[in-house]
Structures are given as structure tokens and as C-alpha cells.
């Protein structure tokens, strides 16, 4: 009889990623039985103790999992599921999760709800809520098959704190079924604060008119110790690297302060920043959608407002 919740633990720079404890927190709050974790990769066993608040952590540690491949991770996860027999499986909506969720659902003959932002049990069954139609709507889904699988948007859930590490159980899997091969990887060089971790994000939109408009954005981000973000239009136009894109198909950020400059606030952009604690908008169009989600705003041209704002920030900070 399927029971409990199994979450996918992930590593970031060799340590358990923040999203993992968020998944543990979400799983605990469901109250749907024991919570266990699975950690898949090569040379990952030592990190398993970093997952806390779970009864058990299943580890598939195999050289064939050194690089993420759809088949490798799907087969490894399926081997864990066969042992753990969970009623619910939660993954982060991460690089791995957004690819693995659908593949695992097919392998297990069940369904997956992607990019969910809230989860609850109703009459003993999982119900998930997720943004749809570019963030314009919310869809609530139920499942007719077990296990129910959901990917969960990073930073949408409060992380589990405390608790002890689970008992580690090693699981073997058959690595012969991997049909894709990673032949190259180019890691984008990033400077300064990581966008997803930044407490302040300053984002520029198409309204800046060109890549040169980002000089002021960079200066403001530097002054505030924050990171630079870009709208999808800006990334698609090649003004800024893809890694800076905030939105449905880019990064999801939830800083304390999100300053959106010349960003119209299309729903797909808001999907990436609506978790921010305070949104500030600078836009010359008073009807821009971004103002609807903002706490503070300036209606004006960034060309004059931004240099003035940078000077004002320096002044008030100098005066304490």
C-alpha cells in the first residue's frame, strides 16, 4: 500500500540545495505519512546527511549519474520508488525537476503537476495549485493515479528547519538504459551575487531601448549589493545573457527588494518575481501592469529617474 511522501534532494555546489528543505517542509505539512528523500548522483552519498527532517534518505550513488540525463535519473528514481512505495513524490521545479518530473510520471504510469505553488490534502488525496496561462490563471489539479507527482516552484514553500538526518539506504540501479549523452558543458561565468540568492534584484526591461541602458541598472545593483536581472524580451534580443532572465521560462527570484525598471510586467515575467517581498517599479507608462504588483513606484523616464535615484540612494545611505 503506497504511503508517505518521497522528495527529490538536489545538490548545489556540493551541498544540499535550499529547495530540498523547502520540499521537506511542504511534505511535512501535507501530513500524508512519513517523509523520505532520494539523492541521485555520483559521489553524493556524503551529502545525504544534509537532508534533515526525513525518516530515510535513499541514495543512488553511481558514476553513470555524474551528468544529469533524463534516462539515468528516471531509472534511478524509479528504482527508489519501487522500494519506498510513496503515495506522493515531490520534486523542485529546477533544471533536473522540470525534465525528470514528466519522465518519471511516464515511467510510473501516473500524472505530474508541474511548477506548483501550493499543495494540500483533500479527502486523503493531493490537490495542487499552479499558475497557468502565463501566470494569468491558477489551476487546481487532482490525481486519479498513484503515486501523485508534483514539481514545486523554488521559494514557494517555507523550508523545514531542524530535525535529524534520515537513515541512509543505498539503492542500486541499472545504468544500461541511458540513451542520451552529454558531450559538452559550458558553464556561464557569473560575477557577484547569484541572481536567485540575491536579497536585492534590479531588473531592466525592453523599455531601456538597448544594452547600453543597463549601465545604470548595473550601477544601481552594485550600490545596493544586488544582482542584475533581465526580462525575457531583453534576453531574447541578446542585450543580456540568458542566465539573467527572470520569468516563467527563466529564473524565479524572491528577493526582499525587486526593482523593475522599464519592465511592462507581462504575466510571464511576474511568474518569476511575484514572490518578491517588495516590488518597486520605474516606468514611464502609468498603466503598466508592473505597478499593479508594486509597493512603490515612480512614473517617469528611466533616463532621468535612474541617475537621480542612484544619487539619492547614495545620499540617504551616507546620511544614515
Amino acid at each position: 500500500m503506497a504511503n508517505g511522501v518521497l522528495i527529490l534532494a538536489e545538490l548545489m555546489d556540493g551541498k544540499i540545495a535550499a529547495v530540498t528543505q523547502e520540499l521537506v517542509g511542504a511534505a511535512q505539512r501535507l501530513g500524508a505519512g512519513p517523509v523520505s528523500a532520494m539523492l541521485l548522483g555520483s559521489g553524493v552519498e556524503g551529502a545525504a546527511s544534509g537532508v534533515t527532517g526525513v525518516e530515510k534518505t535513499y541514495v543512488v550513488d553511481d558514476a553513470a549519474l555524474a551528468e544529469y540525463t533524463t534516462d539515468g535519473f528516471t531509472n534511478a528514481a524509479a528504482a527508489v520508488v519501487a522500494l519506498a512505495d510513496p503515495a506522493i513524490i515531490l520534486l523542485g521545479q529546477t533544471n533536473a525537476g522540470r525534465d525528470l518530473g514528466p519522465a518519471l510520471s511516464f515511467k510510473l504510469g501516473t500524472a505530474v503537476a508541474m511548477d506548483t505553488t501550493s499543495l494540500e490534502m483533500k479527502d486523503g488525496k493531493l490537490h495542487t495549485t499552479r499558475p497557468a496561462y502565463g501566470g494569468n490563471a491558477r489551476a487546481v489539479n487532482g490525481f486519479t493515479s498513484t503515486p501523485a507527482i508534483a514539481t514545486v516552484r523554488p521559494k514557494s514553500q517555507d523550508a523545514a528547519e531542524g530535525g535529524s538526518a534520515g537513515v541512509v539506504e543505498k539503492v542500486a540501479f541499472d545504468a544500461s538504459g541511458i540513451r542520451t549523452k552529454v558531450v559538452a558543458r559550458n558553464v556561464a561565468a557569473s560575477e557577484g551575487v547569484r541572481l536567485e540568492d540575491a536579497d536585492t534584484v534590479v531588473t531592466g526591461g525592453r523599455g531601456l531601448g538597448g544594452p547600453e541602458g543597463f549601465a545604470d541598472i548595473e550601477a544601481l545593483a552594485k550600490e545596493l549589493g544586488g544582482a542584475v536581472g533581465a526580462s525575457r524580451a531583453v534576453a531574447d534580443l541578446g542585450w543580456r545573457p540568458v542566465g539573467e532572465q527572470v520569468g516563467l521560462t527563466g529564473k524565479v527570484v524572491s528577493p526582499t527588494l525587486y526593482i523593475a525598471v522599464a519592465v511592462s510586467g507581462a504575466s510571464q515575467h511576474m511568474a518569476g518575481c511575484s514572490g518578491s517581498k517588495n516590488i518597486v517599479a520605474i516606468n514611464k507608462d502609468p498603466d503598466a501592469n508592473i505597478f499593479k504588483a508594486s509597493r512603490f513606484g515612480i512614473v517617469g523616464d528611466y533616463k532621468t529617474v535612474l541617475p537621480a535615484f542612484l544619487a539619492a540612494v547614495k545620499k540617504v545611505r551616507a546620511e544614515g
Binding site: A137, N141, K292, R295, G300, A312
Partner: peptide, 27 residues
């Protein structure tokens, strides 16, 4: 996967637009 509900979320943020006659005052 069943669709139990579909709705438009309510956004209740009220923006405070900065007053000022010049960009410097607004900033």
C-alpha cells in the same frame, strides 16, 4: 490529472506612486 478549479488570482497590492515635480524629487 483532473482539473478541479480554474480561476484568476486576486492581486490586492496598492502601489504608492512617488510625488515630485522633478525626477530628482521623485527619486
Amino acid at each position: 490529472l483532473t482539473l478541479e478549479a480554474l480561476y484568476v488570482p486576486v492581486v490586492d497590492t496598492k502601489v504608492e506612486i512617488m510625488a515630485g515635480d522633478t525626477p530628482e524629487e521623485q527619486a
